[in-house]
């Protein structure tokens, strides 16, 4: 497949600048990572509404809460590991519980952070954030979708967690596509198995489906950008239709997309499934694409999981 690659972080920064022009009430907070998260683009344009607070993720979340309580629409950014893990209690007590208008947009989610290694590779954040009442969780599939999602959360009241990845992503969706919150998108239809993926894993799911086609297996591919609330109807529909589901995510196989899908299946329409993701292990240093291969989370990994599942299904 031929895709254009684009940095999702840059798309985030550019969208923030657009929103800053449209809306006086938007303020942006960062904790000394603004050149990486790209909030610096907003800061350059709107210095009076940009607060780079230094290495204070906990304080940043509390300040975000106070600004939101005073009528501001607040974006806070850091790496996923710090924005969620480091500041979890502040996010819980000061943002989630009072349901304040704070958008946590974290970059560097997952093992694809790469060379920085396990300390910086956040593989628990989707679980942490889905477990918080009042929070909604979105993992945009590409830079085009990042623009739509950032725009959406800016105009929708309340707390959101948006997870971005470090590497550039292939633009699978087009600029004109629509983002429908809470709905998965069927990128390719199929009858024998369904591959449900999120974020960086979606392009690998598409490649895996292509390989499966060559074996005469018709695989559907679903982009599940919204992890919470998850698109139950679509999961049930494809469980009925194909009877087998593989999930793929750049996250621990516990408490992420795979777990969400499993919950829906078990309660509604149990079919066999397999989860592709980090196998409850900390990552390690390496190039991001090498790591996906190493942990069998690339197209070959998804392909193999699908083949294995179809064997069991027989």
């Amino acid at each position: 497949m031929k895709w254009e690659y684009e940095s999702p972080r840059k798309a985030y920064g550019e969208t923030l600048v657009e929103l800053g022009k449209e809306r006086e009430d938007i303020v942006v907070l960062d904790a000394d990572l603004s050149t990486s998260t790209k909030t610096a683009m907003f800061g350059k344009k709107f210095p009076e509404r940009f607060f780079n607070l230094g290495l204070q993720e906990q304080n940043m979340m509390g300040i975000a809460a106070g600004l939101a309580r005073s009528g501001k629409t607040v974006f806070t950014s850091s790496f996923a590991v710090f924005a969620t893990g480091r500041a979890y209690d502040q996010v819980r007590q000061s943002i989630a519980y009072p349901r304040l208008n704070v958008k946590i947009v974290a970059t560097h989610g997952g093992v694809t952070v790469g060379e920085d290694g396990a300390s910086h590779q956040m593989i628990e954040d989707i679980g942490l954030m889905c477990g918080l009442p009042n929070f909604r969780v979105i993992v945009p599939v590409d830079s085009n979708e990042v623009r739509r999602v950032i725009r959406f959360v800016a105009y929708e009241y309340g707390p959101f967690y948006v997870r971005l990845t470090r590497p550039s992503l292939p633009n699978i969706t087009s600029k004109d596509d629509e983002f429908i919150f809470g709905r998965g998108a069927v990128l390719k239809d199929g009858d024998d198995i369904t591959l449900i993926a999120t974020g960086i894993e979606v392009s690998y799911a598409l490649l895996a489906a292509e390989r499966l086609e060559k074996d005469g297996i018709s695989a559907a591919v679903v982009n599940m950008s919204t992890i919470k609330p998850i698109d139950k109807d679509l999961i049930i529909k494809y469980a009925r239709k194909t009877g087998a589901i593989v999930t793929a995510e750049d996250h621990n196989i516990y408490n992420g997309l795979g777990s969400r899908v499993a919950e829906v299946l078990v309660e509604n329409y149990p079919v066999r499934m397999l989860r592709v993701g980090m196998p409850d292990k900390f990552g390690r240093s390496g190039k991001w694409n090498e790591l996906l291969k190493y942990y069998e989370m690339d197209d070959a990994g998804i392909y193999n999981a699908a083949k294995k599942l179809l064997e069991v299904k027989k």
Partner: peptide
Amino acid sequence: MCTGSLGQGLSAAIGMAL
């Protein structure tokens, strides 16, 4: 402001002051 988990209220107050 919701409070109860200690150590956080001063940060929220800073947000309001800003």
